[in-house]
């Protein structure tokens, strides 16, 4: 039963071959459509550079994730060799100093960007209905990011790291009711030692990153679902109650008005 195929040009055939994997993927997952939706979704026409702070924060996090994975290949979370492995990474491993430096300073950049991004959202009033939940997720991400800083600080196992963590954990212990319990869980005993280091390492590179990635996913989902806020000062801010409803979109009486000179106003 031969169905007559419409004649196809060579160009069309090539296109079909090239797109076949995408079609295959789309038919089985809908992912191509999702990416298309993400890329071509409409955002207000007046978004500006301040609104890149969120994706900048995400970039800083990705830098932390990638450099962190590389560092984990060389780092040993054991008090006897942790310090030596940090020295080895810094002095011997090819570009190890760069990866460690990026992780060390990327942490600061990540935290600064979280605060900047939050300030932007606050000043734009972008936390308002229906975006309250995303503000809460953002605050949680800020707390988790700070905890990443706290747990990562101990890992080089040098004097600064050690004693700052001793005092940090002890300060935790001053908290009411769960304070002392939290301290001994963090320490893994009554003294800072091998258990503490392993615990901090695990929290730093498994628990917190997993939680942060999950929350970032949710954060982005809500951004895409609810849309990006227009700057409040914009003359054409989307959905702004303070902007007149009726804008003269098109001068409908075309032909009835005199042709305006170039660059002149329509009315």
């Amino acid at each position: 039963m031969a169905v007559a195929r419409p004649p196809r040009s060579r160009r069309k055939q090539m296109e079909a071959i090239a797109l076949y994997p995408l079609d295959w993927l789309e038919e089985r997952s809908g992912l191509v459509g999702a990416v298309k939706y993400f890329l071509f979704r409409k955002v207000p026409g007046d978004t500006n550079w301040f609104q890149t702070l969120g994706s900048a924060t995400l970039t800083a996090f990705l830098v932390q994730a990638i450099t962190g994975v590389i560092l984990a290949m060389y780092y040993t979370p054991d008090p006897n060799s942790a310090y030596e492995s940090i020295k080895h990474i810094t002095n011997d491993v090819t570009l190890g100093w760069l990866v460690r430096g990026m992780h060390r300073w990327g942490a600061s950049v990540f935290i600064i960007l979280m605060f900047f991004h939050m300030a932007r959202v606050f000043l734009f009033g972008a936390y308002k209905y229906p975006r309250e939940l995303n503000w809460i997720i953002g605050v949680l991400l800020l707390v988790l990011g700070m905890l990443e800083g706290f747990t990562g600080y101990l890992l080089p196992w040098d004097q600064t790291a050690y004693w700052a963590t001793v005092v940090g954990i002890n300060l935790n212990g001053t908290g009411p009711i769960i304070g002392p319990f939290l301290s001994s869980v963090l320490r893994g005993g009554s003294e800072i030692g091998p258990d503490t280091l392993a615990r901090f390492y695990s929290i730093h590179m498994l628990v917190l990153p997993a939680a942060i990635m999950g929350l970032i996913g949710l954060h982005l989902y809500l951004v895409i679902r609810l849309g990006v806020t227009s700057p409040p000062w914009s003359k054409k801010a989307a959905g702004a109650p303070w902007i007149e409803e009726d804008e003269p979109e098109q001068p409908a009486r075309k032909g009835l008005v005199e042709p305006t000179p170039r660059g002149g106003a329509a009315k």
């Binding site: 600061s108 706290f150 040098d158 004097q159 050690y162 001793v166």
Partner: peptide, 17 residues
């Protein structure tokens, strides 16, 4: 990096990031 952590010496400044 600082000197290696040593719980026996106390010439430290507990300075956080």
């Amino acid at each position: 990096y600082d000197a290696k952590a040593d719980s026996g010496t106390f010439s430290f400044v507990p300075r956080p990031d």
